[in-house]
Design a protein around this nucleic acid. Sequence first.
RNA 1: AGGGGUAUAGCCAAGCGGUAAGGCAGCGGGUUUUGAUCCCGUCAUUCAGAGGUUCAAAUCCUCUUACCCCUGCCA
Length: 556
Amino acid sequence: MSDAENRPTNFIRNIIDADLDSGKHTSVQTRFPPEPNGFLHIGHAKSICLNFGIAQDYNGKCNLRFDDTNPEKEDIDYVHAIQKDVKWLGFDWAGDIHYSSDYFDQLHGFAVELIEKGLAYVCFLNAQETREYRGTLNKPGKNSPYRDTTVEENLALFDKMKNGEFEEGICALRAKIDMSSSFMCMRDPIIYRVRFAHHHQTGDKWCIYPMYDFTHCLSDALEGITHSICTLEFQDNRRLYDWVIDNVSVPAKPHQYEFSRLNLEYTLMSKRQLNSLVNENLVEGWDDPRMPTIAGFRRRGYTPASIREFAKRIGVTKMDNTIEMGVLEACIREDLNDNAPRAMAVLQPIKLVIENYPDEQTEELIVKNHPSDESQGTRIVPFSKELYIEAEDFREEANKKYKRLVLGKAVRLRGAYVITATRCDKDDQGNVTTVYCTYNEDTLGKNPTDGTKPKGVIHWVDANKALDATIRLYDRLFTVANPAAEDDFHSVINPESLVVIEQAKVEPALAQAEAERAYQFERQGYFCLDNAIADSGKLVFNRTVGLRDTWAKMSK
RNA sequence: AGGGGUAUAGCCAAGCGGUAAGGCAGCGGGUUUUGAUCCCGUCAUUCAGAGGUUCAAAUCCUCUUACCCCUGCCA
């Protein structure tokens, strides 16, 4: 399949195609404009893939621009984290990083231009009064008493604002548009406010900061953005976006297009709520593997390719949507099934003793790292008389549907011999502690010569050579599909979103595991070494996602 | 005195007047030294509803309904 056939198609790309065909544009320039006030989440990944993906496919450019007009909420740490996440996802921005604050001087000039045209004024209504004057959805607003101040006076007043002669909240610069507009954002929106705050880029140079609606459109114009793509809640704002562009002397006229934001089942996507999960220590941080942040998915073991594929599969439309977790899981399973080397790990070990295996004998079995991809090679797995197997892989008796080890029945040890269980030991509670079996020496790499073939295959590790490991089993953070709809999401947090298994046994080859590198623990799922403690030398594996499990489904 | 948007299967989503793509999920079967993978089959007489135009309508027109967004000196 050619690249062109492989491209996604959506309404925004249709618009771009038409713009290119009509000659409205000869090249495409997009931008990804996060505010540095938190970590990027999977919803941002959708936007990143859209904006950077368009630039790639149309031979255009995509800028990374920090929308940093509100210094009180922003932090330089987020600026760094966001860059890291964008790069990790596999994208690179055109040229230098941009900041809205790069344009503060020009923006100030545009504000002065509006004042000179009689299209902006300094208003001394306080926040409460401003709200009252604005009217409601069903009632027009009324004009501010400061609306007809002369141009000269406004120029002087705005200069005083800029020079720090007014305290915060005393006054603001407003665009003079229409207090009876059906678009609330057109009822003389505030475009500059006073904030005596230190800015992570501009320091203490400014005490007035431009508002989003004034800044974003002009930043787009200044950067030559052709298609300014944002989410649906900005649809009304587009009228103000166009008004500003039309009333100020900028050379370009960018257009805004809106698509629906991503909602994912069983998780939250609003920065405010993610922030409280972090601040209330309900998770271990922004990169907790249960978080829907890009950093969280990375630590969980998701690959950049899987997230890009996810973005492609969910599409881009204007429809409100809630994507099932299964879509994301299918993407990571597809990637990891092809690319993750196999290994064996026993999460709930019970001992298996092979009674007819020589006491001191050990073998180094050669096992394939991938069942069908020869290029992934082989590894050595030690084998001896005493092994560990999974507690749930043994039953004293079972019906025919159970395809694992049962007393008197045979089963294949993955990559090794066929064994038959003979007896078992139990502790005081009746839990099986040791299973005894015999092995068929002539079954390594082949079926028994008597024509029988064991129904099941179970995984195992050598009891003496196995490594101790901690395994963290992650599950959905919430018990309901739409936690955002709850009055209080705290009441629906999944108490079993993290289950830590301290006494797992893993095969020795896993000593070489690297952080974020995925393994398939056979018959269980995909795991990766935790990136936060990888350097400690401790083996802590995070479960990225389980294998599809039709057995669990049918045995329910 | 309200305005802006959106309705195609369980969840996404193509479609743009010529007779409903695809993915995920599901269901049935086959292969398999992972109950995985892989393979095969199946899954909308109908597009929110009702009218209308047309030889022909998910696509055009009218009305109705449902849901989302907008009254921060946040973005």
